[in-house]
């Protein structure tokens, strides 16, 4: 079972430089893992163990989602000094390699279904992409469905696909170039 000294970061499976967005996603994953009817744990843990695990997840999330509580917690762990600023939502993203999974390049040509499969495999919803990218959810659906009749002009489409790719962890430029070239040639 979990080590007694496990930190809140460890409970959620994230690093201490995790962004609010990453904390949110990690929390949803962990909370889903300990739902009463979760397939992955119902036969592995008894009710009491699952409840305890769930409480640890909620406690971790309660601290890490709150910038002020997180700051105090980080100070207690020795991660930051008392005088440093609390991490806010606007804190800079972690340097490459410290937080996110490696950026992926899909094989050429990149299709709408390819993008959808990759997104789903990462457990990311269109709503999350829309929130993070400011691209309308309707356009994101068109991109995945390759609705050539309603997709915007290439100059806009390229930007939208780059934003989509950035959020799901794909390399934005080659993804957008490959997708747009294929869609435009088929128009």
């Amino acid at each position: 079972m979990s080590a007694p000294a496990e930190t809140h970061y460890g409970v959620l499976g994230i690093g201490p430089r995790a962004t609010p967005e990453q904390i949110e996603r990690a929390y949803r994953h962990a909370a889903g893992l300990y739902d009463a009817d979760a397939l992955a744990t119902y036969s592995l843990l008894d009710t009491e163990e699952r409840e305890q695990a769930r409480e640890r997840v909620e406690a971790a999330y309660g601290v890490l989602r709150d910038p002020s509580r997180r700051h105090h917690y980080d100070v207690a762990l020795g991660l930051v000094s008392e005088a440093s600023s609390p991490p806010l939502a606007a804190a800079p993203p972690p340097p490459p390699g410290t937080g996110r999974a490696p950026v992926v390049v899909l094989p050429d040509p990149v299709t709408g279904p390819d993008l959808k499969r990759f997104r789903e495999s990462r457990g990311i919803s269109l709503r999350e992409i829309a929130t993070a990218s400011k691209v309308g959810i309707r356009y994101l659906e068109y991109i995945e469905a390759e609705r050539k009749d309603v997709l915007p002009a290439p100059v806009y489409l390229r930007g939208f696909v780059q934003e989509y790719a950035r959020v799901v962890g794909l390399d934005p430029r080659p993804t957008a170039e490959s997708y747009v070239a294929r869609v435009v040639s088929a128009r």
């Binding site: 499976g13 994953h29 889903g32 397939l39 992955a40 744990t41 843990l45 495999s121």
Partner: peptide, 19 residues
């Protein structure tokens, strides 16, 4: 469904944390 896809990720986490 996406929830079914997520089961794979949950299995990996459950294996690591509880086994």
């Amino acid at each position: 469904s996406p929830a079914d896809i997520a089961v794979g990720h949950q299995l990996v986490t459950a294996c690591a944390r509880h086994l």
